[in-house]
Structures are given as structure tokens and as C-alpha cells.
């Protein structure tokens, strides 16, 4: 094959940051939304649990039942995509050399993280729209005063659990990440204060219980979450983020 002279004449330079961030976030979000296992984890299982918790009265939930279920499932959805989904995706992306590929481009390191976070936030929006509409159909009444808090908590939850996901997915082998991320998800759901209110005090110090509790204030009562749960979320997020910057490997 022959090429016209000048085809490859060097013209290096960094692309526009805004476009880089947009394309990166879009790619990340599309990959998640196209992946069957991710859809199962982030949309279908939370959807099934939302319906089950709303309708099956054998599981004890405070009234109003659908509102309480929605708050817990919103928290679970964020944990599913920001923590478990992100950790697994990162584990395999490292295996496939994606991080190295992108680190070799002109993309700044902070944008490598920002792109993933923005992609995860886009996925959370899709999840919450699907789950929120379903909850409304089931009889949930969102107090409008809670909507800003719902948005703030979604972002905060995504960031905190995203940092935890990166901490897990960025340091261990892909198969181990896959196993651990799923086990931790299940444990947080069952005994981490998400599906069931746990009577033990230390559970309130888990980010899962904190997010579920804060969501309950916003989604059921339309009030600001207490300072406690917010501080717990921020604490876990910052600790995981600081640790992850030391442990995350490109491959």
C-alpha cells in the first residue's frame, strides 16, 4: 500500500479537554449500558428488589413502604454501579491494557479519573430514572423538597463508592476483583444496612448504611440528611481515594 506524501507529517498537540472528557465519559457509560452483566447488576436486580420490597410484606420495612423501599434501592443501585460495577470494569480494563493505552495518549491523569467518574454518574442517572419511574408507578410520592438532596446524595454516593471501587479494582487481579466486588455487594445489601435495618450500632458507620439512611431522609421525608451519614460517606470516600492513589496500577 502506498500513502500520499505528507499523510503522516507530524502535527502533535493535545486535544480540547472538554471534548476529551465528553468522549471518555460517553465511552465509559456506553460500555456499561451495553454490558449484559452490568445491566443485570445495576438495573435488573435493583428493579426486581424494588418490586419485591414494595409488594412483599413479609420483609419488615418502615412505612410508607414503597418510599422506604425506593430509598434503599436507590442506595443499592449506586453501590452496584459505582462500587461493584466500577471495580470489575477497572480490573478487566487493566488486564486489557486500557489504562496504559489512555495513559500513553495526551489525556491528563486527572481526566483519566474524571472521565470514569462522569461516565459512572451518567449511568447512575439512567438507573435512578428507571427505578424512580417504577417506584412512582408502585405508589411512591416524592416530596419535592427532597429532590435536591436526592441529587446531591447521588453524586456524593457515586464519588464515595466510586473511590472504594477504584481502590478494589485498581490493585488486585481481575478475577479476584470480580469475586470480592460481588461478595461485598451482597454483604452490604444483606447486613450493611441497605435492605434491612440492622440493630447493631457499628453498621451505621458503613458507607452503605449511611447512604441508605441519608436517602431515606431525602426520598421519604423530603428533609436534609443528618450530618452523621454524610460525614461517614465523605470519610470513606476520602480514605479510599487517598489510598487508591497509592495502590492503583495501570496494568
Amino acid at each position: 500500500m502506498t500513502f500520499a506524501p505528507g499523510t503522516f507529517t507530524p502535527a502533535p498537540g493535545r486535544g480540547r479537554l472538554g471534548r476529551m472528557l465528553f468522549v471518555h465519559a460517553r465511552t465509559e457509560a456506553m460500555l456499561t449500558l451495553r454490558n449484559g452483566e452490568q445491566i443485570l447488576l445495576t438495573v435488573l436486580i435493583p428493579l426486581a428488589l424494588l418490586v419485591a420490597l414494595s409488594l412483599m410484606t413479609v420483609i419488615p420495612l418502615p412505612a410508607p413502604r414503597v418510599g422506604s423501599a425506593a430509598a434503599r434501592i436507590f442506595a443499592l443501585a449506586i453501590i452496584s454501579s459505582a462500587f461493584t460495577g466500577q471495580a470489575i470494569a477497572l480490573g478487566f480494563d487493566r488486564r486489557y491494557g486500557v489504562l496504559k493505552r489512555l495513559a500513553a495518549s495526551a489525556m491528563p491523569r486527572w481526566l483519566l479519573v474524571a472521565g470514569r467518574v462522569s461516565g459512572a454518574l451518567a449511568v447512575v442517572v439512567v438507573q435512578l430514572v428507571i427505578l424512580g419511574v417504577t417506584a412512582l408507578v408502585l405508589g411512591w410520592r416524592l416530596p419535592l423538597s427532597g429532590l435536591p438532596w436526592l441529587l446531591v446524595l447521588s453524586v456524593l454516593g457515586t464519588l464515595s463508592f466510586g473511590a472504594l471501587g477504584v481502590l478494589l479494582g485498581g490493585s488486585l487481579r481481575a478475577e479476584i476483583v470480580l469475586a470480592l466486588a460481588n461478595i461485598v455487594w451482597f454483604l452490604l445489601l444483606m447486613v450493611g444496612g441497605v435492605a434491612l435495618t440492622m440493630p447493631v450500632g457499628f453498621v451505621d458507620l458503613l458507607p452503605s448504611a449511611a447512604l441508605a439512611k441519608a436517602m431515606e431522609a431525602a426520598v421519604v421525608h423530603g428533609t436534609a440528611p443528618g450530618l452523621g451519614p454524610v460525614l461517614v460517606l465523605i470519610g470513606w470516600g476520602v480514605a479510599a481515594g487517598v489510598l487508591a492513589t497509592r495502590t492503583t496500577k495501570l496494568t
Binding site: A11, P12, G13, R14, G15, R19, M20, F22, V23, H24, T27, M30, L31, R34, N35, F92, D93, R95, Y96, G97, V98, K100, R101, L102, S105, A106, M107, T251
Partner: peptide, 22 residues
């Protein structure tokens, strides 16, 4: 290596291309 497991060739190359000025 060098691609997301589920990425399509044009998506991957577009992403890398978006990092460049020209």
C-alpha cells in the same frame, strides 16, 4: 492489549483521537 474488552474499534480509536489536536 490496549482496548476495553467490550469496546468497538471505532469507539476506541475515536477516544484516542479525541486526545489529539490534529
Amino acid at each position: 492489549g490496549g482496548g476495553y474488552p467490550g469496546v468497538r474499534a471505532d469507539e476506541m480509536l475515536n477516544l484516542v483521537a479525541s486526545c489529539a489536536a490534529n
